[in-house]
């Protein structure tokens, strides 16, 4: 069920964001908003927008960076999972496009997408862990990649300021010595408070309430399940949706805001890509001690949520 203990080793990570920056000042020229309003309400100062690149291009760049960083032999990969709700094609998925672009054609390799909105990357990690443990797979490439600008209505000032494009990737290997704990779940959203048709539609206050509550509860449940506390936790990496959600969660958990790794000011909300981008940026800046845990926590449409404790 939702609470689950598994094992894998993190081999490498990478992220990629498009070059083009859309700042709050740029948005002031498009919709009735202001830099001060966006910054105080969301913590976002700028976001990256893909220009001529699509989702699997971003995913490929992130994957390639993860491969290069560890000088990893890509032919070892036998599982590719991409978390996205913005694939460029209905089929094949982003994972299959990345497989093709990497030139991987090993018999038995499995590549598929997971659509669980902003929780997608946590769901993908959970599925990867189970396939590494129970299946014959040994090496997984898990990606979160989004080009949300394709489904953003730049006439809607309530949503267009929030989202950006990007991708992050992790390479994992089967390893029975490195514990990983999951708390993943889907809760039904009868009122459809967050959904995407042509564009993103959101009941902001209700999503805010759900998110603030679920960060706290999912982490508390995970700590209790895993019999560890915050003293062994290097950082919490939350889905980067809104700075105020993160502040509210820190207060509710009784931990300093500095316990959270935050890069929302640079990228906005990149949905399934936000956690792997933030994880890679954190690992570029700081190295957790051996045995320390890093908590990931995501929440989004569905309503879905997931927390995960990685062991370094």
């Amino acid at each position: 069920m939702g609470l689950h203990k598994g094992h894998f080793r993190i081999i490498s990570s990478g992220h990629y964001t498009p070059e083009h920056i859309l700042s709050n000042r740029d948005l002031e020229k498009i919709v009735d908003t202001s830099d001060a309003w966006i910054t105080s309400r969301t913590g976002i100062r700028e976001r990256r927008i893909a220009n001529g690149e699509n989702t699997s291009d971003l995913a490929l760049h992130a994957a390639q960076k993860a491969l290069d960083k560890a000088a990893y032999d890509k032919s070892k990969i036998d599982l590719i999972i991409a978390a996205t709700f913005t694939p460029e094609l209905r089929s094949p998925g982003v994972a299959a496009r990345v497989q093709a672009k990497l030139g991987l054609d090993k018999p038995g390799l499995l590549a598929f997408d997971v659509n669980a909105a902003c929780t997608g990357f946590i769901f993908a990690l959970n599925i990867a862990e189970r396939l590494l443990k129970g299946g014959s797979y040994r090496s997984a490439l898990v990606i979160g990649a989004e080009v949300i600008s394709k489904v953003t209505d730049y006439r809607d000032r309530n949503t267009c300021v929030l989202f950006g494009d990007g991708a992050g990737a992790l390479i994992l290997e089967k390893d029975s010595k490195k514990e990983v704990f999951f708390n993943v779940s889907s809760r039904s959203d009868e009122d459809l408070i967050l959904y995407v048709d042509q564009y993103i539609n959101m009941n902001g206050p209700r999503v805010y309430q759900f998110a603030s509550r679920v960060i706290e509860s999912s982490i508390r449940e995970l700590l209790q399940f895993g019999h560890f506390d915050m003293t062994g936790v290097h950082k919490i990496i939350p889905h980067q949706a809104n700075m105020r959600i993160i502040e509210s969660a820190a207060k509710a958990l009784g931990v300093p805001l500095e316990s959270f790794f935050v890069n929302i000011q640079k990228y906005g909300n990149t949905s399934a890509a936000s956690i792997p981008i933030a994880l890679d940026e954190m690992l570029e800046e700081e190295t957790p001690l051996s045995g320390e845990k890093v908590l990931l926590v995501g929440f989004g449409a569905g309503l879905s949520y997931g927390a995960c404790a990685l062991t370094f």
Binding site: R41, G204, R206, Q209, S212, R213, N242, S248
Partner: peptide, 27 residues
């Protein structure tokens, strides 16, 4: 208050008064 301040207030009320306000009630 903006809409997010209002939600934050309701969450503080939940803690202070020991109640839970379902998401469907807040509107």
């Amino acid at each position: 208050a903006d809409s997010l301040d209002a939600i934050q207030l309701i969450m503080s009320i939940e803690n202070a008064f020991g109640i839970t306000v379902p998401e469907s009630e807040i509107d």
